[in-house]
Design a protein around this nucleic acid. Structure first.
Length: 195
DNA sequence: ATGATGATTAACT
DNA sequence: GTTAATCATCATG
């Protein structure tokens, strides 16, 4: 059940990783308890893509995107919200996959407390929501998700998603590269951020 | 040191 | 469907 995806999984083409991440399970084990959710929506951010943080070169903020694959990239947006990415490709290449939505599986009561919401659809339906529900903070930035020893944040294997259930669309909430088909989600899932 | 900006969310009309 | 809230980060002086 708890098979952690190896670093080889992340050390591949970013678009491929974004597609294959769907259906797998993000797990965060904290002192408060364990939370887990099935990944149902992702976006790929590629080097050279104007919407990608790394497109303007390396900065102190995005430096972990250029680091080894399988690390967590957590950043703050609008000063108030967090977003969670997984670093992909290879060291020296600034690419990552943004996790946009989860289907809550484990630790739902804890998620409800952390979010202050009761309805399941209000727990993980959006990048900043799922980060809050999972108890992820900027302390997790740069954390190695593969070793999973000191860090208890990782992705374990779930049921694969068939090509027929995989939908490719344009991304959300950006002004540049809007036309690029780099957003992926599971067809018919109830927990995606936008229908 | 200071100002512009944004991979968002929640509340409101 | 629209809009305000809100601040870390980056670029410029």
């Amino acid at each position: 059940m708890e098979f952690i995806l190896p670093s080889e999984f992340y050390a591949r083409d970013t678009v491929l990783v974004a597609r294959e991440l769907l259906g797998h399970v993000l797990v965060h084990d904290t002192p408060e308890g364990l939370t887990a959710g099935r990944i149902v929506e992702t976006e790929a951010y590629l080097q050279g893509d104007p919407a990608c943080h790394a497109s303007r070169g390396m900065t102190p903020r995005n430096r972990v995107m250029f680091g080894p694959p399988g690390h967590a990239y957590v950043y703050i947006i609008y000063g108030m919200h967090h977003c969670f990415n997984v670093v992909t490709a290879r060291e020296g290449v600034g690419e990552a996959v943004l996790i946009r939505a989860l289907e809550p599986l484990e630790g739902i009561p804890l998620m409800q407390v952390r979010r202050g919401k009761e309805k399941l659809k209000d727990l993980c339906r959006g990048p900043a929501m799922l980060v809050q529900a999972m108890g992820i903070s900027r302390n997790n930035n740069g954390e190695d998700m593969v070793v999973g020893v000191g860090g208890r944040l990782f992705v374990c294997r779930g049921e694969a998603v068939g090509e027929d259930d995989l939908v490719t669309t344009t991304r959300v909430g950006i002004n540049q590269g809007v036309e690029l088909p780099l957003r992926f989600y599971i067809k018919g899932d109830n927990y995606i951020s936008r229908k």
